[in-house]
Amino acid sequence: MTAVIELKGVAKRYENAGAPALGPLDLSVAQGEALAVTGPSGSGKSTLLNLVAGLDKPTEGTVTVAGQQVDRLGEHALARFRRERIGMVFQFFNLLDDLTVLDNIQLPAQLTGSSRRKTQARAQELMEVLGIQKHARAYPGRLSGGERQRVAVARALVNRPSLLLADEPTGALDSASGQDVRDLLVDLHRGGQTIVLVTHDPALAEACASRTVHLVDGHVALDSRAEAVR
């Protein structure tokens, strides 16, 4: 199976910190796979996600995503890479409060220079699928946590990314909304979307992921795929 993510000998050290925050580690994620990255606070989960998204650069090793060696890309190419290949969902939604729901969803497509008609059609389609079309003209501040996260998921998917990265997507939600988002991720995975999910929540990992990697102190303590092979 083709690897969408390929990490080789990746380590990340922050300035003035002794031990590396992550790695060195090797990791590959296949297309269509849903990987849950779990672990305690400070285990390197978010660092791993940032490296994959090209938001940060590794101190050692190479990060290849969808055939592109991300760690060698310049800022401009990284921006293009993110907008074309990656969709991101954050714990605190990170919606822009000044923009309506529709404008938030359309933003990544507009940054690529996609036509107004195409962008709008895609946004409408996603809002329908995610059941938020009635909020198209509303501002994020007026929505519930679950609705906001649905908007964030729609925004992440608007450019049909190869990879969906979700950082604690249910961390800021009540249990009903959390269940909503969990179902949504399951549906996306079933539809073939490659997902990397960072979470503290074992139930979420179990429900959504086809594979789980447990990090401790920046190293892979457990990889369910390797366990299965064994």
């Binding site: 938001l55 921006a79 993110r82 907008r83 822009l96 940054l111």
Partner: peptide, 13 residues
């Protein structure tokens, strides 16, 4: 923070 979000979504420098 908003600029960070935009950049995470693919806004180039």
């Amino acid at each position: 923070h908003d600029l960070g979000v935009c950049k995470a979504l693919g806004m180039s420098p």
